[in-house]
């Protein structure tokens, strides 16, 4: 599973990196940076990845199997 960010949609609500710091972190503006690990999410982080994605109010994050 891979997490994809649409930077045009991200507005820096910060829900993703607060909930799932293993896969996301804020840049200087507080917008989302997807960490390399999210390119191929390890099985133990699948649920955390989905949680980060589903909490984004802008639907800026999505997953691809």
């Amino acid at each position: 599973m891979r997490v994809i960010l649409d930077p045009e949609r991200c507005q820096g609500h910060g829900r993703c990196y607060t909930l799932t710091p293993e896969l996301f972190e804020p840049d200087d503006l507080g917008h989302c940076v997807v960490l390399p690990l999210a390119k191929d999410v390890p099985p133990e982080l699948r649920e955390a990845a989905l949680s980060g994605v589903a909490n984004c109010p802008e639907q800026a994050l999505s997953v691809e199997e």
Binding site: G12, G14, Y17, T18, P26, D28, L29, G30, H31
Partner: peptide, 9 residues
């Protein structure tokens, strides 16, 4: 762009 860094997490 100038305000966000001042209020970043």
């Amino acid at each position: 762009r100038i305000l966000d860094p001042l209020f970043a997490p």
